[in-house]
Design a protein around this nucleic acid. Structure first.
Lengths: 334, 334
DNA sequence: CTGAAAGCGCTTACAG
DNA sequence: CTGAAAGCGCTTACAG
């Protein structure tokens, strides 16, 4: 591969000038710039990025940590992040943690070794030691998206899980439901805590505290199916509506209902969360809470790049959600 | 950050020795190795990877190019690739091309700039100029997985799309179906060509050529839904079975059938391709062709690492598929 | 505006 | 087995 030296020779100037023509064109005369451009094309030069990174002590790489790459919820967020990153000359490395602390640690280790400039966390399911001292340093290149830690205050872009849930539950109550169950994600997950609180508070405000019922899933199809079965087989206190912390779990509940011969929405209303592509193609089409995923990704990346640029950042951004009413909800069968 | 010099000072040896203790422990006495290890812990040293990469002229990064990150079909393949890569000290960068030639080119450009050591292609939808000269060079660090080019012969790990399709069609014929339509992926995609050939040949072998009918989709839900509608609204020659090149399209067909009041599998059989997670949770559960996705990812990565190591490689690996019969297929309603 | 030169943090052939 | 030294390909303060 030709190096910057070859270009310098071909252009009849020093390597310093070639470097400047590339990085700071305004520091070089127009004529020089053009000679360098021609020389680059002539020798077929492409800068060696490892050398540049070493010299500049940066990698232009952002890593995003997520709990499970196969969850389609994340893909649109990633697209948003990539859009902003590429435009700024950064690339994004996707780190699938799979609930394995060692994996998360390995990705965090890219920071001190200069392989990554910053990290966007789409999961809080990592060893807290990795982030525990980050909130003290204002300039830690760390941003949380969607998730949060209960006790560590990182720059965050997210939705208001409490409000979004309250809104969905209010909608079910307004339809006439009085027995509304909830299939939560992992109970120790802060966003699930917020949602469960929103759920409970709303029921309480409507005088329905007594019927609150929360079971725990893991966001996946299967757990929704299993918890749905458990909830619906309880014939004495069977809920007339089930609110789920993910679309996958809601679709699992739909399957459970079908299996038990319980019609949706006639005999059971189901609400999901996230509005994944699938939610429009299941039977019946799913009523769900939509998050602005693309925008979440964009804003999280913008926030991180601002931190890297040493600019002041708004440490907390709350984006709005939308309840998308489709066919899986209706009035209860009194 | 402490550098290798700091470690050398703390260990009372040269940087060369520290480097050796790290990279080739067998070239160093046990005592030295231990002194270095202690020194590393003491000063909190982590190697600067940009410097190492520059010196070694490698990046230990493999990029995988795919057409659409939101398609869950790819996630399990990626997991397989990461498993093998991490074990060998490589990381994998996921490149979402989104049918944008410029994106693909940008990712290919990581090769000459030393930011990536090799590429695994999960899509053939990229400018052919990027790969056209690769097949001549035996050691091009390029591997194809699942897909292929019609005229460029790259090292490949894939399934036998012709056979897998023939098997699925045979199954439908054996059930008694005589009007079997097919919803293909993009018609210019080589794997779709193979599948369509397998479809046509099998129908011909069974004396059913006359009823062959292929419509084109793009692998996504929506196109399956639309083509399903078109196929099923044709009341004079309505198919009794539809074979689809992806599960998403099959699920779209399911929705079209539901909308038209056509019962599956009583009045229509539907077969998908890929066995994505969703295929077990749609209504009815989908009969589909399963690919060994994890293994495809593993083998593709192994193949690429062999090429990078300068080892001889089997240039073509065909893994076996499996027809998973669930609830969306049955005998036709004569 | 341009160039000579130092240096980023490693690795490795060479010599001992 | 170990060290001194060169060099990977850039960038940038310094001088002119």
């Amino acid at each position: 591969m030709p190096t910057i030296k070859d270009v310098a020779k071909a252009a009849g100037c020093s390597t310093a000038t070639v470097s400047r023509a590339l990085a700071n064109p305004e520091k070089v005369t127009e004529a020089t710039r053009q000679r360098v451009a021609r020389a680059i094309a002539e020798v077929g030069y492409a800068p060696n990025v490892a050398a540049r990174n070493l010299r500049r002590a940066e990698s232009r790489t952002i890593v995003t940590l997520l709990p499970d790459i196969s969850n389609p919820f994340f893909s649109e967020i990633i697209n948003g992040m990539e859009e902003v990153a590429h435009q700024a000359g950064y690339q994004v490395l996707i780190g699938d943690c799979e609930r394995d602390p060692a994996r998360a640690e390995a990705y965090f280790n890219l920071l001190p070794t200069n392989q990554a400039d910053g990290i966007i966390l789409l999961t809080s399911d990592i060893p807290r030691a990795l982030v525990s001292h980050a909130d003290a340093r204002v300039d830690s290149p760390l941003v949380m998206a969607c998730e949060s830690f209960s006790d560590i205050d990182l720059p965050t872009v997210a939705i208001d899980n409490y409000q979004a849930t309250a809104h969905a539950i209010d909608y079910l109550v307004s339809l006439g439901h009085e027995r509304i169950a909830s299939v939560s994600g992992p109970a120790d997950n802060p966003i699930c805590c917020d949602r469960t609180l929103g759920y409970r508070d709303t029921l309480a405000a409507r005088g329905l505290s007594g019927s609150a019922r929360v079971v725990e899933g893991d966001f996946g199809f299967r757990s929704g199916y299993q918890q749905g079965l458990a909830l619906l087989e309880d014939t004495v206190a069977r809920p007339s509506a089930i609110f789920c912390h993910s679309d996958e779990m809601a679709i699992g509940v739909l399957k459970a209902a079908r299996q038990l011969g319980i019609g949706v929405p006639e005999a059971l209303s189901v609400v999901g969360f996230d509005n994944i592509g699938f939610s429009e193609y299941c039977e019946p089409e799913l009523t769900t809470v939509s998050q602005p995923r693309h925008e979440i990704g964009q804003q999280a990346m913008r926030m991180l790049l601002s931190i890297l640029a040493g600019e002041g950042v708004v440490r907390r951004q709350i984006l709005s959600t939308q309840l998308i009413v489709r066919k899986s909800t209706g009035r209860p069968a009194d």
